[in-house]
């Protein structure tokens, strides 16, 4: 029997929704289109099947998410993942944190950075550029927002270009969105 996970981990769990996902067999054409279901692609995750209850949002959100997280130029991928992790720590989305911490580790091999973040959370001590990125993303994620001009200045001082700074804002903000779906509509489970 699988168990719900409440502690941060870099081992990606499964995700189990609190609402009944859309049934692929009875999905509407609009839902199938939003899920990108085609005769050659029938593998759809429980998360996407859950979001298919609102196909108009899902259809737009997927390409938006991919552009923000996996766009070619600008902020390096690993640093977008760090922004995603910062937001996910604040919002305590254990599933999102696991997925994006494991991507960060895959790109950088820096398991120590993730270990420090999972242990100390908002108080994590990192090297200067990562500290500036992580703190900005975390502070932008609180309500009300704790982020201020000094945090933006720290990004510039760490050498981030305007485009890189913008990419960090976007990657932290899109996890303000993703966390509010994944953490509130279901829970991570260990198999």
């Amino acid at each position: 029997m699988s168990e719900a996970i409440h502690q941060f981990t870099a081992t990606v769990p499964t995700w189990s929704p609190y609402v009944t996902p859309v049934d692929l067999a009875t999905a509407t054409p609009e839902q199938l289109a939003a899920m990108k279901v085609t005769p050659s692609n029938k593998g759809v995750s429980p998360y996407v099947l859950t979001l298919a209850h609102d196909p108009e949002s899902l259809e737009v959100r997927s390409p938006l998410f991919n552009l923000i997280m996996y766009g070619k130029d600008g902020l390096p991928s690993a640093e977008r993942e760090l922004g995603a992790v910062g937001a996910s720590i604040v919002n305590r989305c254990v599933y999102c944190a696991a997925v994006h911490a494991s991507r960060f580790i895959g790109l950088t091999r820096q398991t120590d950075v993730i270990a420090e973040i999972f242990a100390a959370e908002r108080n994590a001590r990192l090297e200067p550029r990562q500290q500036a990125l992580f703190d900005f993303a975390a502070k932008l994620s609180t309500t009300p927002s704790e982020v201020g001009a000094a945090d933006a200045q720290a990004l510039a001082d760490a050498g981030l270009s305007e485009l890189e700074q913008l990419d960090l804002v976007l990657s932290a903000a899109i996890f303000g969105w993703a966390n509010r779906l994944m953490h509130t509509l279901g829970e991570p489970r260990a198999d």
Binding site: L140, S145, D151, A152, E162, V169, L170, A173
Partner: peptide, 18 residues
């Protein structure tokens, strides 16, 4: 989730502008 995303993008960009 969207409104929280949108507001943070705007707030973040305003700060970068500062």
């Amino acid at each position: 989730a969207f409104v929280n995303y949108q507001q943070r993008v705007i707030a973040g960009v305003r700060l970068l502008k500062q």
